[in-house]
Design a protein around this nucleic acid. Structure first.
Lengths: 234, 234
DNA sequence: AAGTGGTCTAGACCACGTT
DNA sequence: ACGTGGTCTAGACCACTTC
């Protein structure tokens, strides 16, 4: 291996595991030993192995060394695109329609989940995203006005709430949950499908740090039209 | 910042983006400039920025530099654990039951998807995974015997097919698809739920490189009992 | 106490894309 | 042609874990 680099080393490591030269559960040589074998710097080995460990294939501990995972928990990376871009990437025309829009005091079950003060004001927004004028996604969103007061000036007929938030409140962290639900009357009506259809549903909650406080920015439920699938590679 | 490291730098970069000191779409300083500002090596800046780019927050191009993503496609990392470990991690007792098991010539729709020869032999295996004796997951799997001939010796009453494959055919790459489907008669019967229930369904196809050929190892459909959710953080 | 990975440094050359 | 990120090197010190 004359022109070594960390990708070549990763391939070689994968190959050794696949051919069972290195078996699940076994310790593999140390970084120093591998650097000698591949005639490269330890930093190069480190990067190769560190990334493989991030995908779950290897497990590394100081002092004990690096071993092949016995039960590799595969790490799959999902892209969570902006709906408009997802639709446009499929060559379809994007349109969205605001179904309802109101500023209210947060109802209890929402204010509890968003961890708001009792008088917390929120925007409650329901909208429908369409691809080639077919319903694609029904969105039910709550936005914490204390976190992003500027959002009242946004024109949601032009830019979707998600897109506004992505551009104006970046770097939030959050939870995402994926599941299947049967379409409620509201879902069915918005998406134009029978009540009881199986819908792919994503629930997302995002936070920002405001004065070192983890503050909920938005809570959203996304119900996709039947047939929607998310795809990834491992 | 006396004790700089790449995590501190990442925090600082996130902070500058969040406070809009660096705005979406803008070019940020070069690695050399940031290394001077933080009094650290360029390699440290490189690692900090490279990882932020991997999460979708920054976009980097040679010559043009690094800019804050305008429409950050969020990258979420999903853990795909072995079902047994997932159930045991929830404090429940894992059990699984083989519902059917046969070695057959692959039917056309399967051999096409698996890209098999016309006489390709496959294992067709249906099994039910249970948590505390409640149906948890109904698995319908096809295994390419040409890729993993040893699997015929596995005792699936003891080890699940997935677990056997993970330990004996590691490093496969694959596609994963997530969606919602209504329960078929088979699903409903296996999981003990009404026909038409909304099920979270995962389809997975995995390959191995065999003599430089991308060979399908297994094709599996996983139908989870109603209520199942996948969760991740971003 | 000692071994292993985790990170950093200062410098170098290269690959890619823009100009 | 040239500026930027991508990667590598050789060496160093440190943090964590096991012995």
């Amino acid at each position: 291996m004359s022109r070594t680099n960390y990708l070549d080393i990763q391939s070689e490591v994968r190959k050794r595991i696949q051919t069972r030269a290195w078996k699940p559960g076994e310790i593999i040589p140390t970084e120093v030993e591998l650097a000698a074998e591949f005639s490269c710097a330890r930093a190069t080995i480190n990067r190769a192995l560190r990334e493989l460990a991030e995908t779950g294939l290897l497990e590394r501990r100081r002092k004990s060394g690096t071993r092949v995972s016995l039960n590799p928990t595969r790490k799959a990376t999902l892209d969570i695109p902006i709906t408009r871009l997802e639709i446009e990437a499929a060559g379809q025309a994007y349109r969205h329609k605001v179904l309802s829009f109101e500023q209210v005091g947060a109802p209890d079950h929402i204010s509890a989940r968003m961890n708001l003060n009792s008088d917390g004001q929120v925007l409650h927004l329901k909208s429908l995203h369409m691809a080639d004028d077919q319903p694609f996604l029904f969105e039910d969103r709550w936005v914490n006005l204390a976190a992003t007061p500027d959002i009242v000036q946004a024109d949601f007929d032009i830019i979707s709430a998600n897109e506004w938030l992505v551009q104006n409140a970046p770097i939030s962290s959050g939870d995402i949950t994926f599941g299947a639900e049967t379409a409620t009357k509201f879902d069915a009506n918005a998406l134009g499908v029978p009540v009881g259809s199986a819908l792919f549903v994503v629930n997302r909650q995002t936070w920002m740090l405001i004065e070192a406080q983890k503050t909920t920015v938005t809570l959203v439920r996304l119900a996709y039209a039947p047939g929607y699938q998310m795809t990834t590679k491992i």
